[in-house]
Design a protein around this nucleic acid. Sequence first.
DNA 1: AACCTATGAATAAAAGTTCATTTTTTATGT
DNA 2: ACATAAAAAATGAACTTTTATTCATAGGTT
Lengths: 191, 191
Amino acid sequence: MTRTKSGDKKQAIFDATLRCVLRTGFGGLKMAVVAKEARVATGTVYLYFRNKEDLINALLLHVKAEIHTAMMQDVETDDPFFTAFKKSMINYIDFCYGSPEKMIFIEQFYRSSYLYPETAAEIEQLALPVLNMLRSARNEMLIKDIDRELMLRQLLGASNEIIKYCIDSGRPITKLLREQILDMLWSSIRR
Amino acid sequence: MTRTKSGDKKQAIFDATLRCVLRTGFGGLKMAVVAKEARVATGTVYLYFRNKEDLINALLLHVKAEIHTAMMQDVETDDPFFTAFKKSMINYIDFCYGSPEKMIFIEQFYRSSYLYPETAAEIEQLALPVLNMLRSARNEMLIKDIDRELMLRQLLGASNEIIKYCIDSGRPITKLLREQILDMLWSSIRR
DNA sequence: AACCTATGAATAAAAGTTCATTTTTTATGT
DNA sequence: ACATAAAAAATGAACTTTTATTCATAGGTT
């Protein structure tokens, strides 16, 4: 069995899609272009995805899952909250800065008519671990008494904008900058 | 002479475009659909805008200018920083919550291959007043010593996500919630 | 040989743009 | 005021371009 099996091709299409969208936004997602970028025939894309909508939904779910997994990497259940918070936010920032195409793809398609309600529902589940982390912190009176969901959005929204700014302006995320970002995020929610 | 003058029709097309994009994202911006929504003929749109790209760029500039004007509404040059900050952020939040179609439109098209570099340059100018506000605050040692541009993105990114969450979940922005949001924003930048 | 996978030119559908025609407005002369 | 003509604005069906999707054919694997 060669190493070039079906899973690889699906992944190649995913990667190509992300590259296309990073390059020219949602307008860059054209089936023929994606196929060429993935070095497969146009028809091949349709062997792995029913249509464009399906490709988008599958990729959204895939990328969102990746981000959430990365975010909770090395976060132990018995970490003190501040440690866990710091780890997860650094994970998030580093992941997004390192894979801007994934962040951009989500931004472009998460709020679009392409998104199936079922995909949205599945994606919601992915945020549960982080939300739980915030819940215990609030129970311990470590953070402000504000709707956790809203708080999470605030944190990620702030991070996203910062990351995009760094990418667009070619500014690297240094150790110092990361500390500054974390400081802003932490002070926004700490009690 | 009727009240229906050329300026009105341009505005009608702007409004229709925003409604279309709010309804179905970037995919909802189709010239024929926009025209129908604006109650004009397809060709009429091309009397006011060279093409789709132009429409998008003109509207982006228009809406961004509106937002920045609204943001600085009632902010006096001799307001103490905290007062000015609070006013501007409340203005921003209320404006965006009240006109989500404008916020959504910017989110969808600001980072897209449609955006002309000249439009981007003009839009950058619009942020100068807020940035200056942040500069004096930093000079007075009232806020953290962090790149102003980055700080502004953080504030607006956080606000945007919160506003979208409220809109999507049908949650109204009460006096209390506004205080909570402001508290998060302020603590994130205060020294 | 049967089966799975891949191809890419051909097809169909969708969307942007144009323009000959019509309607409305403005200007002019009686 | 009214009629009339020139100009401007608006129309929407027709045209063109773009893009998603299909499918008859070819290549490879068991």
